Amino acid sequence: MEFRIPLFQIIISFFLVLFMAIKSVRKSKARNLTQKLIPGPRKLPLIGNLHQLAGPGLLHRTLRDLATKHGPIMHLQLGQVSTVVVSSAEMAKEIMKTHDIVFANRPFLVVSMITTYECTDIAFSPYGNYWRHLRKICTEELLSAARVNSFQSIREEEVLNLIETIKSNEGLAVNLSEKVFSMSYGITARAAFGKKCKNQDAFVSVISEESKVNSGFFVSEFFPSLKFLDVVSGLKHRVEKIHGEADRILGNIVNDHKESIAKGRKYSKGHTGRSG
């Protein structure tokens, strides 16, 4: 998936936080006197290194070029957010394995706060007893060998559908990334709902839109103290709308399951009565 940071959003962010200039510069000077930061490219006041990530190039290539110049571990100041970028397998192992608990938590961003009910899911909840309890549920109820094997027919059917789709478009360009994502969502939805349902396609569409929002660039994420940016930019309203639609669809799916269960019990009782 290509990811670019629009230059015009960087410019807008610069003017939105202009009034913080004096305060930011003073804090930056005080911090530089008291601590030694990891080496990194020179930064501008207010926006830090954001301007170096903007432009026509892909983000991962830009970071690669910066790492080639400044080393496998470098410091970037992204607005108000101090960021460390690691570009070597050895450093990544130290962070992801040796010191994984230290780096386990994720920032509380507006998108994750809204879509996961204030970061209460396994992906965004803080490390602790609650997160360990969620992991235990996932390990025992969702990711056990027996449970994974029970979904084998679903995986095989969805993969076959993907192959047939590609085959039917022989000689034409196919967006493979889009098709693979669609297949993954289809497998997940069928595994979660137990069967194909009338709301499945709508739910997959909403989740896809939610993923796009999660992976997007938003000025407010780099200036967390300026919470009004989420409202001014329309981000909060957009995320709330997507989340509301997802809740509505899930509510319909749950109600359909309840009706199916009730009909099954009613039929079972009636059938037993006649047999008696």
Score class of each variant (00 low, 15 high):
residue 48 G to I: 06
residue 37 L to S: 03
residue 59 L to C: 08
residue 53 L to H: 03
residue 50 L to K: 13
residue 57 G to C: 08
residue 66 L to V: 01
residue 63 L to E: 05
residue 63 L to K: 00
residue 61 R to E: 15
residue 43 K to R: 13
residue 67 A to E: 01
residue 51 H to K: 15
residue 52 Q to F: 03
residue 63 L to W: 02
residue 50 L to C: 07
residue 41 P to I: 02
residue 56 P to I: 06
residue 63 L to T: 03
residue 60 H to S: 11
residue 59 L to G: 09
residue 61 R to F: 12
residue 48 G to P: 07
residue 49 N to K: 08
residue 51 H to V: 08
residue 40 G to E: 07
residue 67 A to M: 02
residue 41 P to F: 10
residue 44 L to P: 06
residue 62 T to A: 01
residue 62 T to D: 08
residue 55 G to H: 08
residue 46 L to T: 09
residue 50 L to I: 00
residue 63 L to N: 01
residue 40 G to T: 01
residue 51 H to E: 06
residue 49 N to Q: 07
residue 50 L to Q: 11
residue 53 L to R: 00
residue 39 P to Y: 04
residue 52 Q to G: 08
residue 67 A to W: 03
residue 37 L to I: 02
residue 56 P to T: 01
residue 52 Q to A: 10
residue 39 P to C: 08
residue 64 R to K: 14
residue 45 P to S: 13
residue 38 I to Y: 05
residue 46 L to K: 11
residue 65 D to Q: 14
residue 67 A to K: 00
residue 61 R to H: 15
residue 37 L to N: 03
residue 42 R to C: 03
residue 63 L to G: 02
residue 38 I to F: 14
residue 58 L to P: 06
residue 43 K to G: 13
residue 60 H to F: 12
residue 47 I to V: 07
residue 48 G to V: 06
residue 38 I to C: 14
residue 47 I to L: 04
residue 56 P to M: 12
residue 49 N to I: 04
residue 55 G to R: 09
residue 57 G to W: 09
residue 53 L to G: 07
residue 42 R to I: 01
residue 60 H to G: 05
residue 63 L to P: 01
residue 57 G to Y: 12
residue 59 L to K: 02
residue 42 R to F: 04
residue 45 P to N: 14
residue 46 L to Q: 09
residue 66 L to E: 13
residue 46 L to M: 09
residue 56 P to N: 11
residue 51 H to W: 13
